[in-house]
Structure formats: C-alpha cells, structure tokens
Amino acid sequence: MTTGEPLIVLDAVNKWFGPLHVLDDVSLSVGRGEVVVVIGPSGSGKSTLCRAINRLEPINSGTITFDGQPLPAEGKALARLRSEVGMVFQSFNLFAHKTILENVTLGPVKVRREKPAAARERGLALLDRVGIANQADKFPAQLSGGQQQRAAIARALAMQPKAMLFDEPTSALDPEMVGEVLDVMTSLARDGMTMVVVTHEMGFARHAANRVIFMADGKLVEDASPAEFFANPRSERAKDFLSKILTH
C-alpha cells in the first residue's frame, strides 16, 4: 500500500496545555494511501495529534512534515497546506448559514478560485457519492447527524485533498447512523485515500485500517497492524483498554 516517501511525518512532537503534557515525544509517519487509526482512552492526546497535523493545534516542539514540506506558521502558506488536507470533525461543523451544496462548493470557489459551475458539478457528484444528493438545497440543521457528517466528508473531498483527517467522526452520532458514515469512510479507504482516523469504532479499525496506533497519556504506546494489535496487544495500557471496550 505504501509507496515512496511518507506523506505525513511527525518527529519528536511535544505539546503542553498548561502543565498537561498532551503530546509526549510523538513520532509517527503515514505513507501515501495508508489508513492509520488512532485509538486510546479519552484524554490520551489522540484528537490533539490529529488536529496538530493541519496545525489547528500548534505544537511546542518537534517537527511535522506534510508531503515533504515542514508545516508553515500562520499565513497564506499554512492556508494552502490546510486546503490540501481534508478535515472531518466530531461535531460536523457544517456552515449553518449555507445550504449543503454551498457548503461543498465554498472551498473550491473561494480558496481554489474554481469556476462556480465546475465546483457545483463536482459538488453534486460528491453529494451523490456520499448518498445525499437529494439534500443539496437544504440547510445543515434540516439534516440528520449521519447526513450532516456525510456532507462534511463531501465538503472535505471537494478540495481534492492529499490526505483526510477524521477527528472522532462518529462519536456525536446516534448509533443507527454510525454505519452510514463508516461505509463512506471505508469506501474512501479502499479508493486509496491517505487517512488518519481518530475513532472508537473498533470494527472500522479491524477491517479498514492498515495500522493501529494506540495512545495513552500523550504517548504513542503501540503501532501495529490491526490483526496484531487486537490479537496480541503488547502493553498493559492497551490490554486494559481493549478489555474495557471489547467485553461489552
């Protein structure tokens, strides 16, 4: 699956929230086309790790490289980098004052300066791909959570990103809507999208991930294939975590 140099490289990354060492010397590389699932107990730093990759969270030390370039500081260069990394949030964050189709076309038109007609055509195709083409003219609040999250995935894909970050994309959903979002993510993974996915969905980790990263207390504790991780977790923290979530 992995070819050439890795797309995302984190090297000795540290971040503190006040006295809390939320990322503790984290190093990680994600190859092109690789799907990495990050799991761990809450407060382990996995969301922060995800958000650091497009610098929604600035880091205190270490380096993060995307596609061979170190992450730029604030400004135009950072905006350009962010436009190449799709992000999907736990709370969807669709633009509340725009229709679903406008949500999907706004980035291409305003950031990429694409022609509105072309952006609209691709936007409708993407909405069709995630199964909500018939919702194009509605506002986000009129959609179910699952539909909103699929629209948010379409919005990120509209930028034709090199990688996609998912920060607990199904945690805010009613249980019956988790499947429809995971289906879209699974099909993306199959199509070769590079993905970093913070999630509690062990099923998705098992069948769609190339690697599973286990984090605890800001440290990257394990980095293994899903089969290996779920069958033989090496650390006590991972064994403890898995026993808690898999016994139910």
């Binding site: 929604l56 949030f89 709370s91 964050n93 980035g107 950031v111």
Partner: peptide
C-alpha cells in the same frame, strides 16, 4: 458563532479575512 464554524473554515484553507467575511460575520 460556534468556534467550530471558524475552525472548519480554516481547515478548508480560508484566510483570516475569508473566515471572517464568509463564515463568521454573516452568522
């Protein structure tokens, strides 16, 4: 306006001015 709105706009690659004029101020 919820912080997530500006965050999503930044994640799309919008500049500070675009985030403000296209997403935050209209709401």
């Amino acid at each position: 306006v919820a912080a997530g709105q500006a965050e999503a706009a930044r994640a799309l690659g919008m500049t500070f001015g675009q985030v403000l004029t296209l997403i935050v101020l209209p709401q």
